[in-house]
Amino acid sequence: MRFTVAIDGPAAAGKGTISRAVAAHFGFAHLDTGLLYRAVGARVLAGADPVEAARSLTPGDMARDDLRTAAVAQAASRVAAIAQVRDALLAFQRAFAARDGGAVLDGRDIGTVICPGAQVKLYVTASDAVRADRRYRELSANGADVTPDGVLADLRARDARDAGRAAAPMAVAPDAVVLDTTRMTIEDAVARAIEVVTERVAAQGQ
Rank of each mutant, 00 (worst) to 15 (best):
A53M: 01
A53I: 00
A54P: 00
A54L: 03
R55Q: 04
S56P: 06
L57S: 07
L57H: 00
A63G: 15
A63Q: 05
R64H: 05
R64S: 01
D65G: 07
L67W: 03
R68S: 05
R68W: 11
A70K: 04
A71W: 09
A73G: 10
Q74P: 11
Q74A: 07
Q74L: 15
A75D: 03
S77C: 02
R78Y: 09
A80C: 07
A80N: 06
A80R: 04
I82S: 00
I82Q: 01
I82D: 00
Q84S: 08
D87M: 11
D87Y: 14
A88R: 00
A88Q: 02
L89K: 00
L90T: 07
L90V: 14
A91I: 08
Q93S: 01
R94A: 06
R94M: 10
A95H: 12
R99F: 14
D100L: 07
G101D: 12
G102C: 01
A103V: 08
V104L: 01
D106P: 05
G107A: 00
R108W: 05
R108D: 01
D109P: 04
G111D: 02
V113R: 11
V113K: 06
I114H: 01
P116G: 11
P116N: 03
A118V: 06
A118F: 05
K121D: 12
L122W: 05
Y123C: 13
V124D: 00
S127I: 02
S127F: 10
V130L: 03
R131H: 04
A132F: 01
R135D: 02
R135M: 13
R137V: 04
R137L: 04
R137A: 10
E138R: 05
E138Q: 15
S140D: 08
A141P: 12
A144W: 11
D145V: 12
P148G: 07
V151W: 02
V151L: 11
A153N: 13
A153Y: 08
A153P: 11
D154N: 03
R158A: 11
R158G: 08
R158Q: 07
R158V: 12
A160Y: 06
A160N: 15
R161C: 05
R161I: 13
D162V: 14
D162P: 11
A166I: 15
A167G: 13
A168G: 09
M170S: 07
M170K: 11
V172T: 13
P174W: 11
A176K: 13
V178N: 13
D180F: 09
